[in-house]
């Protein structure tokens, strides 16, 4: 029997290469960015004070939060419908549904955004189709506004919402539903007073997960918003790559980072995080 101590050390030795990579290339520079947020262009909390004094910053944060909240609400409701149908479907149907969900999950966000551009443009398929059947006479403006950004973001987020909800529905003891029905509750009563409360951890985890991903979302707002719907991530990239104002960018990154970490902590209270992230990709 090998003694416990060298075994322990050997384990840590295997962790070392990845730890070194993550520390040197990722966490180190992030600490540097946090430091920049209170030192660039001058030491102090000037960058954070700008949050209150600058109208454009307030507007960007407000836009980001509003879009995130709306997108999260819609994605979770749609995700709940899909998860519910999947749990109650026959095996074959459930596998087909899961297949569709995973295919959409895996298609590059860039390809999907491009497709929405084709569908929602002034001469896109949706507008042309609606005009051809006479529903509208003027093209609807889907692009360069929040509507287009929301459509693109919800489309990306629904699979992320389904997976935690599905996990919590599958973990539920199905007999409580039968018990509720046999005690005389109607189907609707059973759903609202038994089923929904029991799946609440999954709903909360899904909402937090979707909200977290939304907060830092770059591609969809940048392309479908067309510069008109400015969210935090796009604003950060402009500050870093074009106007070179690292202090402001670092401050926003710090806000985003602490927001995401706080939400993750909250989420870990509702669901084991590994089931959420593991469930998504394994």
């Amino acid at each position: 029997m090998t003694p416990a101590r060298p075994r322990l050390n050997a384990g840590w030795l295997l962790v070392l290469p990845l730890l070194a990579l993550v520390l040197a290339l990722f966490l180190g520079p992030i600490v540097n960015i946090l430091w920049l947020s209170v030192t660039d262009p001058e030491p102090g909390f000037g960058n954070y004070a700008a949050l209150i004094t600058s109208d454009s910053l307030t507007r960007i944060l407000w836009t980001t939060l509003r879009i995130c909240v709306i997108c999260t609400a819609i994605s979770v409701i749609l995700g709940y419908c899909i998860a519910y149908a999947m749990v109650h479907a026959a095996d074959g149907d459930r596998n087909r549904m899961l297949g569709l969900l995973l295919v959409s999950f895996w298609i590059s966000v860039l390809v999907r955004t491009f497709s929405w551009l084709m569908l929602l443009g002034r001469n896109g398929l949706v507008n042309n189709g609606l005009e051809a059947i006479g529903v509208i006479s003027q093209p609807i403006a889907f692009m360069r506004n929040e509507l287009g950004v929301l459509i693109g973001m919800v489309h990306y987020m629904v699979p992320y919402a389904v997976l935690p909800i599905l996990a919590s529905m599958q973990a539920m003891d199905g007999r409580v539903v039968s018990a509720s029905r046999s005690l005389g509750a109607t189907g609707a009563q059973t759903f609202w007073r038994v089923y929904l409360p029991l799946t609440r951890p999954g709903v909360v985890a899904a909402a937090l997960l979707v909200f977290i991903i939304n907060l830092g979302f770059y591609v969809v707002p940048a392309v479908l918003g067309g510069g008109k719907v400015l969210m935090v991530a796009e604003y950060i990239s402009v500050q870093v790559l074009i106007t070179l104002r690292w202090g402001t960018a670092a401050m926003l990154a710090a806000l985003l980072l602490f927001g995401v970490l706080a939400l993750l902590f909250l989420m870990s209270r509702f669901m084991k995080l590994s089931t959420v992230f593991g469930g998504a990709r394994t």
């Binding site: 990722f26 520079p29 991530a233 870093v240």
Partner: peptide
């Protein structure tokens, strides 16, 4: 700690790199 690159928004990762 090692799963952080998966959950920290890509825009922050981009800045860091």
């Amino acid at each position: 700690v090692l799963l952080l690159p998966l959950v920290i928004p890509p825009i922050i990762a981009a800045m860091a790199f």
